[in-house]
Design a protein around this nucleic acid. Sequence first.
RNA 1: GCGCCCGUAGCUCAGCUGGAUAGAGCAUCGGACUUCGAAUCCGGUGGUCGGGAGUUCGAAUCUCUCCGGGCGCGCCA
Length: 651
Amino acid sequence: MLLDIHVRIKDALRAAIVSQWNIDPPDVVLNQTPKIAMGELATPVCFELAKRLKKAPRAAAAELIAAAGPIEGVRKLELAGAGYINLFLDRANVLRGSSMEMDAGKFRGFGDNPGKVIVEHTNINPNKAAHIGHLRNAAIGDTFVRVMKSTGRPVEIQNYIDNTGVQVADVIVGFKYIEKKSLDEVKALIADPDVRFDYYCWDLYAKSAAFYEAEDPKKTLRGQTLKEIEEGGNETAQMGEAVAMTIVKCHLATMARINVRYDLLPRESDILHLKFWDRAFEELKAKNAIFFENEGKNKGCWVMTLDAEGYDDDKIIVRSNGTVTYVGKDIAYQLWKLGLLHKDFLYDLFDSDRHVWVTSSANGRPIHPAFGHGASVYNVIDVRQSYLQTVVRQGVLALGYEEEAKNSVHFAYEMVALSPACAQELGIELSEEDRKRSHVEVSGRKGQGVKADDLLDTLENDARREVEKRNPELTPAEVAEISHQIAAGALRYFLLKFTRNAIIAFDFKEALNFVGETGPYLQYAAVRGCNIINKLIAAQPDYDLNRIKRFENDPKLQTMLAESDDIWELVYIASRLDEIIAQVIQTMEPATLAKHAFTLAQAFSVFYGKYRIIDENDEDKQVFYLTVADFARRSLMLSLELMGIEVPRRM
RNA sequence: GCGCCCGUAGCUCAGCUGGAUAGAGCAUCGGACUUCGAAUCCGGUGGUCGGGAGUUCGAAUCUCUCCGGGCGCGCCA
């Protein structure tokens, strides 16, 4: 809605510049004014014009205002400050248009590209419980997915499962050689309801590091185990399969707690067994994207030359022993995602309730959704893998797929570390230097870190205490549901409010906070918004709620909005959602949405405290307030939904 | 060595393609509950935007340089 007005303003001003001075118009930039009373939007374009026309900026602005015809949705243009043009929008029109847009549930967002978007996120090694770093990845990825879907673009969510990697092998080494367990014993452990299997593996994985050091310094057992897992058809591989897929189920259950789900789980074992790499290898060779090194340190390897800045050495794709590196497999997978591999997986249903599919090499179902063939591919992976992502994109480019390489996007974000205080709370030993740092990186190999489910459990307990205190009449089931919603909301907001390239120094005090700029603050504002309607009906059972919708078209709305800048400011913020959505997509920055939603909740809370609606005697005023409250509430709830944050019935 | 990121209030962070008086939250001090639910609201204290130079009518934002910190550059994944 506002985006349409922006376009009209820019077009109109450009046309006016051309007709007035017959020059090539500069880019018309629109900014927010410092105060809503000065209008909603401002353009500094006349400063640029002043330079070109050798006029005073204010003079140029006055002429431009005079030259510009009426613009649909804009009430007036005003000369301001040193030469700004301030624009005053038609207030009722903004509310009405934005309200309709929200009803339709489809936002302009970006471009007209109708192609499918593939977003790959989460990607946790299936060998231990998920931790907070994984939660950040999922929260960012899932929010980006929701935002993109709100523009009507088809999105496919993939969660890559590296089920044949060394990390899985290490846990299998733990089961087989540290604990000396058979396949049946491991299966019994998996079936034991008293064992949190992902937690068990968390500890076992940490033990494997110590085991290698003491018993197997050359890690021959790891190599051997990895080989057996990759080859398949043996007991080690069966154990690996059982362990990895059980852990995947744990991860999906954990992620479901914060409202994250997936469409497809592509597995590395299937990429291996279906020989995706062989196909990619042939093409890379045929198109001279990689070459065989006959001399030097990389003798006997297939390597790719990188022309990316900062990476001088060739990257080894196939080792001298003939095995493919991780990046090689990733290139094959990326080609498949882009629909360029000319090979496909088989597919099986992994979770029929949530419609999650998994790739397969042998037992595919005849009917399945069409996966892959993404027009754009976003890989949500932490920034430390930038180098590898560059190699993958380079591989696509070297095959001559320029457009596809451009549409292969590394959605990078910074890691979650621990504040030194938090690390100490967890019993992690710190050096004198570590204590002075702003954050301390954790090592999963040492079993350090904050497990996702532990954090969620703590949040739920804290929330439960508050909910029970405030709502003694609720049943235990209701308390449990609301506590969960608050815990998940608090966590998701906490992870989303930081921009992508901010390192989160995790701290329990901040993450467990329900006051101030937090998820529960936003939820509370939304709950109060909903309660206005509930209380109104309780107080006046015969109140016709349709009056609210009708009032959007009542001429009184215009005059009442014109008379109250404070209320208009709330309406304006609430109507900016389409603009925010477009910005989130363009900049790949979900934090922008989080900040916006918080600003909206703040404005709503102010409005809520300032105006009493139920006991308002003036009928016109009451319906006006109701219209505004309902509009703001809907916008806030939509924003929350885009962040995967639920609104509890009560708080 | 090369490359990327960061440095803004006591703490944690926003600040969009350069634009009007640099903003939030927490903390701190003070005020508002017989309430459409105070997980809230109102007010106060608190900043030479790491230093310097440059570009510009205009720089927290762009360029260069220096200082301080993080990360990456594997025949690991």
